[in-house]
Design a protein around this nucleic acid. Structure first.
Lengths: 168, 168
DNA sequence: TCATGACACATGAAATTTCATAAGCTAACC
DNA sequence: GGTTAGCTTATGAAATTTCATGTGTCATGA
């Protein structure tokens, strides 16, 4: 049960007053804060490379995809709205990182694929990302990486259950 | 140490092609995705109450604080930039949710405190938030809530920044 | 074949966020 | 005592995001 975690002050105290703020024990906040903090570490690398965070997310989501991704699919993957993704892709096309291609079966669909320039850009970043992840996990030797990842995946899965769609 | 997690498909497949995208096993992405997903559940409640997400974050961060928070402190707590917070507070002051007060010791500092209207607004939301958190944790009975929270707190703690704790 | 509804992406105006910087204070030092 | 550097908040222009909606395509069925 015991794991040797950092035993710093339990709350980093933005608040001097009350000994415990609500948010400092609120799971959603702790998740957002942890995610933000560890992402910020990598964002420094992106900054040095002159790559914006959403651009990196798109490139990372595209990496490995041969057929290309749809706009809506990318939006979901990057946790953005669809119109936001359309405009982000406009910029990335302009910068030569990705290209839009027609879908073979469905003419509504636009498939997004990386250009050689996009691939070259993402290649180095992927190396950095993997290195950072390894370093990060090494900071917490007592947690099982796969176990943690499984938990996160299940958290991201459909909340569903309970009220689905209201009867029309 | 086995835990019975949801055994859904390992990746929700935004990508039909490659059997495993990089991002689907990338810790930073999984954290962001999990955080986004569980937050989205609560955001539905906020939507119903007509409260914007950043407004909720400010109110939640203020709840319990007697002396009030500084603008910069709130910005950090809410994972926003300081100018963003200033403008957000402008709107919240306009809507009567918070007020700006001078700091007793330092005239540079502006202390932000909730108005009665702000307190009333946050009260119900806090109840909902706690209920949601309890329901959420009940979905994962095999993880220790406190253990998970400790892990998240340590992840959010200052990482590198040169060396660790230098006794000052 | 023609409705009809749903889907996928784009677009435009409005709201928000960011970046760089300004203005007001404080603290430290010479 | 008067710089000088640093800290806290505010501001304005530019970039981005969002919301609502438009356009074109697909799918179903009468």
């Amino acid at each position: 049960m015991d794991i040797a975690l950092n035993n710093e002050a339990p709350h980093t105290s933005v608040v001097p007053s009350g000994e415990g703020r609500f948010v400092d024990d609120y799971l959603l906040y702790l998740m957002a804060r942890a995610s933000h903090a560890i992402s910020a570490e990598f964002h420094a690398t992106l900054r040095r490379a002159g790559i914006q965070v959403p651009v990196w997310r798109v490139l990372a989501s595209l990496s490995g995809s041969t057929t290309g991704e749809t706009v809506t699919g990318l939006a979901e993957a990057c946790l953005l709205q669809q119109p936001t993704m359309t405009k982000l892709l406009d910029r990335m096309v302009r910068d030569g990182l990705v290209k839009r291609m027609p879908d073979a079966r469905d003419r509504r669909v636009v498939r997004i694929a990386m250009t050689p320039r996009g691939e070259a850009t993402v290649r180095d970043l992927l190396v950095s990302a993997k290195a950072h992840e390894a370093e990060l996990l090494s900071r917490f030797p007592d947690i099982g990486a796969n176990r943690l990842k499984e938990l996160l995946r299940s958290m991201a899965a459909r909340p569903a259950r309970g009220r689905r769609r209201e009867a029309a």
